[in-house]
């Protein structure tokens, strides 16, 4: 039982880590809570679903590898483009007005509500499924069952986490992103255009959210409201790991996933959200810098 719960926690955690990583990449450059991140996650899943069902209607009942590739690629790229659009048309004008953080927060809530309901208007409120073929029996490891799809989710998300980590640490663009995160003015002085870096962050962060949404849609069903919970888990994970810290976001995701699933060992599954938010409140009040104590904005000044 406990092995199964930990395994479930790791799988859920890998998705949380992806969302938290995307959220953190964006947070580092713009320094406000981008709530609309959750709806980008939903949009990625729905885009893939649309392409998937469009391609499926033309052929027989099974999609080729190329078809899958196209559907997933469009989902991820679409999510990235959506992120860029949100920044260009809403956050960019607000930045020029030097709006307060709370204004950004409410505007991003507005984007979230608008887009989520737009998706609901187009696709309906009902649950949709991307069927990946016949359901197979899972594999047995360490007294726990894991399905093929779950292995795929774990593998892909861990791969994405490593690639992103290397990208930010090793490439020139990653270095520029770190520079803007540390000090946008100093970065500007040495010839980095902060606006370009912000756009890049939105593109990468949103693409990650889209990827997370697509991965989860293989495992469970998709519905218009799925982004809300996912977003909150992503935010909680980033705060637990230390807001703005990239390894922290990854760790926080896994930590939250495992904590949530171990929590329902003794109490009912319905309390999962309650556990997650209790963790958030405890961290916010007692350790706002996360487990390793990242310096918050206020302390930096």
């Amino acid at each position: 039982m406990i092995q199964q719960l930990i395994l479930n926690g790791i799988i859920a955690g890998s998705i949380y880590a992806l969302i938290a990583l995307g959220f953190t990449i964006i947070y580092r450059t713009v320094k406000f809570f981008h709530f609309a991140h959750g709806v980008v996650y939903t949009a990625g899943a729905y885009l893939t679903y649309s392409v998937f069902s469009y391609l499926l209607s033309g052929t027989s009942n099974q999609l080729s590898v190329i078809g899958w590739g196209i559907a997933i690629l469009i989902g991820i790229v679409g999510a990235g483009v959506l992120g860029i659009f949100i920044d260009r048309f809403i956050y960019h004008p607000l930045r020029r007005q030097k709006a307060s953080n709370l204004t950004f927060l409410l505007a991003s809530f507005g984007v979230f509500i608008f887009l989520q309901n737009l998706i609901q208007l187009i696709y309906g409120a009902q649950i949709l499924t991307i069927r990946t073929g016949p359901i197979k029996e899972g594999h047995q490891i360490f007294n726990a069952v894991i399905t093929d799809i779950q292995i795929l989710i774990l593998f892909v998300s861990c791969w994405l986490l490593v690639v992103l980590w290397l990208f930010i640490q090793r490439t020139k663009l990653g270095k520029a992103m770190r520079a803007v995160a540390d000090d946008p003015i100093a970065a500007n002085v040495v010839g980095i255009n902060p606006e370009r870096i912000i756009l890049t962050s939105f593109a990468i962060g949103s693409a990650l959210a889209g990827a997370a949404g697509i991965l989860i849609s293989f495992e469970t069903n998709i519905e218009p409201t799925m982004g809300f919970n996912a977003l909150l888990k992503g935010i909680i994970a980033s705060i637990v790991g230390g807001i703005g810290s990239i390894p922290g976001a990854m760790f926080g995701g896994f930590f939250l996933g495992i904590a949530e699933n171990l929590g329902i060992w003794k109490i009912q599954a319905g309390w999962k959200d309650c556990i997650a938010f209790a963790i958030l409140i405890v961290f916010l009040l007692l350790r706002p810098g996360g487990i390793w104590g990242v310096k918050t904005e206020k302390e930096r000044l």
Binding site: S100, L106, G110, I113, F114, L121
Partner: peptide
Amino acid sequence: PLRQMIYGLLLIILMLKRPQGILGRYKLR
């Protein structure tokens, strides 16, 4: 959903054009 969309759109427009609201004098901090 249309009703919610209006709420969302209103929130965005409000934040962009008049963050202090119709009769408000103070902006969000």
